[in-house]
Design a protein around this nucleic acid. Structure first.
Lengths: 214, 214
DNA sequence: GCGAGCGTTTGCACACTGTGCGAGTCATTG
DNA sequence: CAATGACTCGCACAGTGTGCAAACGCTCGC
């Protein structure tokens, strides 16, 4: 699993073949099948492993829930950006929601929202809401980043190449054009950070508003 | 593309091979390469096609923005659940954010949030927030549904099979256990709907709170 | 010390994948 | 009628996941 993870992190999902992994271990593809039922199971195991990297901060006082939730969200997103290949195995990811590490994570997240003042049901839904936002944006970011790395072409060049004429673009998509020209000279990394934070704050605002007033 | 979509919808991503698609069209795999550069491009085209199914409601008065945004979110989610294979091609999906249909969609969504009262920048971020939530939860749902269909085993049976003993489960994950036993006799479809709606409302609440008071 | 057993590895084979290349087909046009 | 160009086909290559049976090597009880 460690070797598989190394392969995935350094060269992406397409680098992980059973033959290659076997070779890297000084052995042969079919030898792996003694330890693991099939490739999917291998990936599930690796995915649960990377879930282990996320740590849930403990919020002692109820007031600290929001900061704790934000830290959790950031940790989750950072994990995905550290391992962008997770994007390509989303259904194994979902299956690994039943691995030991992600079970622990789910349970602790429930605890976090319970401590904030929700009952168990609403804690579950609040948690799902937060995680869905994080999953969605992190996967978009990861996919965009890896694609940008593959054919190194900035987002802005992408956009520009799409429109044969500026006039046409302005006619069809006036707002998109205005947005992208405004973004042209911005720092994409900072922009990505700010955008993530903005959404995170909105989601947490929405959740906070549901808390029983203390 | 129509035949590819049919294949994808009825038998999932693994059914779409160039040989199979060629055969279905009364021809041969390599014939497809005249029309399309490679398989990825084919998928991008199909993905943009299904983006075309989503329609953006027009909100005439500013007060209608919330309902319009909710309709948009539901339409997007329904599209993903109608075509669950999109989960497995997330990076082609992200690439197709630059296809004509999704460009139109993005532009119209910007318009929706501008009409609500945001400036262009914040409209972009609000839209990203909403779409990230929808993407995240819909992809989780789609992956879980397709996995459940594959090895027809309910979510609850899944969970039960994980824990060798109830005592152990209760010790390690007390909240998860309580949650799942509470959910045992619930209708999963209704629960999924309610959960989606709950999160959607929280995200929209968070966005609404940022609107300049009118 | 030795054979038995068992966990683990290996080689081989099968059916399948995406796709490059060159030759062939066919309808439309000058 | 000939030729151009859109399109299709057959073949081949390198690669994939994985089933199966044979072989290996280590650790036991005798």
């Amino acid at each position: 699993m460690a070797e598989a993870l190394r392969l995935l992190d350094s060269e992406g999902i397409s680098a992980l073949s059973m033959r290659r992994l076997g070779g890297q271990l000084g052995s042969v593809a079919t030898a792996i099948y003694w330890h693991v039922a099939n490739k999917d199971e291998l990936i599930e195991l690796v995915v649960d492993e990377v879930f282990g990297e996320i740590e849930v901060p403990v919020a002692d006082d109820p007031a600290g829930w929001r900061e704790a939730a934000a830290t959790l969200a950031r940790g989750w997103r950072d994990m995905i950006l550290r391992h962008p290949w997770t994007v390509h195995v989303l259904d194994e990811v979902v299956s690994s929601f039943h691995g030991p590490n992600s079970l622990r994570l789910s349970d602790e997240m429930l605890g976090l929202f319970e401590k904030a003042g929700f009952d168990l049901f609403e804690a579950d839904r609040a948690g799902k809401t937060l995680i869905s936002y994080v999953l969605g944006i992190a996967m978009s970011e990861a996919a965009a980043l890896s694609r940008m790395a593959r054919d190194n072409r900035s987002e802005h060049e992408w956009i520009k190449a799409l429109w044969p004429s500026a006039d046409e673009a302005a006619r069809d998509h006036p707002r998109l054009l205005a947005l992208y020209t405004a973004y042209r000279d911005a720092d994409p990394a900072k922009n990505r950070e700010d955008s993530f934070t903005y959404g995170l704050d909105r989601v947490l605002d929405g959740i906070e508003a549901r808390l029983p007033r203390s």
